[in-house]
Amino acid sequence: MSKLEMQATRDFYGKTLAELGRENKNIVVLDADLSGSTKTSVFAKEFPDRFFNLGIAEANMMGFAAGLALSGKVVFASSFAMFAVLRPFEQIRNSIAAQNLNVKIAATHAGISVGEDGLSHQTVEDIAILRAIPNMHIYVPADSVSAGRIVREAVAVKGPVYIRLSRPKSPVIYDDSYHFEDGKANIIKEANKADVALIAIGMMVPEAIEASKLLEAQGLSTLVADFASVKPIDHDALIRIAKSSRLVVTVEEHSIIGGLGGAVSEVLSEEYPTRVFRIGMMDAFGESGTPAGLFKHFGLTAEDIYRKVLKAVK
């Protein structure tokens, strides 16, 4: 894994946003005093007339986003996930999603990998709560390449989109051939008959790839899938995976309640009853530490995934 190039998804959000700004004059970007961190500053520098800093007032930012979208703009609204989702949740629901408005909430610093800032800044509930809102699309890029494609797809999709981005650099797992489609999973490692199917999102995708190598070394065949489109979720891929695997495992840097694990369990329990083993934040808050140290502490490294799966598959 250390051989792979390391890049932060948020950097590619900023870069792609500036590209989109050149192509599409209708794109307007809002931030709430974190533009340097969310990387909307890259867009702001090039298009100062289409960038607005709303200050530390996220509820109002979402209302402005709704008003701009009602007037025909494609709006990106950014902050840390905690302040872009949990703080203005009701505004997202009532002002934006209920009107199916073209607002793209691109939130950085999601999950525990925010690191040292600690639990007040570590959102592990964002996917769960947003998934319950009708009209909402939820995308979680696994690396910088995927982040760029997903930001583009978000503009192509009509209606509200949530893009979940991370603070730290992480391995670049995709090359130029990567393709993202709303509602479609990406099978990274195929297996005809898998002992273990690892279904992951975000920074857990590279961890799952490494865990699969460790499992393969123990003679277990593995499938690895990136479910970057958490909503809509790829039902067909899920059922196919469940049919051909002994154990389905979900891995996410998010609560095991209501996130990817929840979404996968909902689909499979109804459409193809299957045991789903969820790895993620076990109904717990995060705390201060380095991202790597926190992944270890909360059992989210490749090594942890490998060990937990080995136990569960027996």
């Binding site: 509820a59 209302g63 986003a65 009602l70």
Partner: peptide
């Protein structure tokens, strides 16, 4: 010109529409 009902949100929405104008 917009859905409303949950109190406190209309002025922000109006702000966004005015800004677009």
């Amino acid at each position: 010109d917009s859905s409303t009902g949950s109190l406190g949100q209309g002025l922000s929405i109006a702000g966004g529409i005015a800004l677009a104008g």
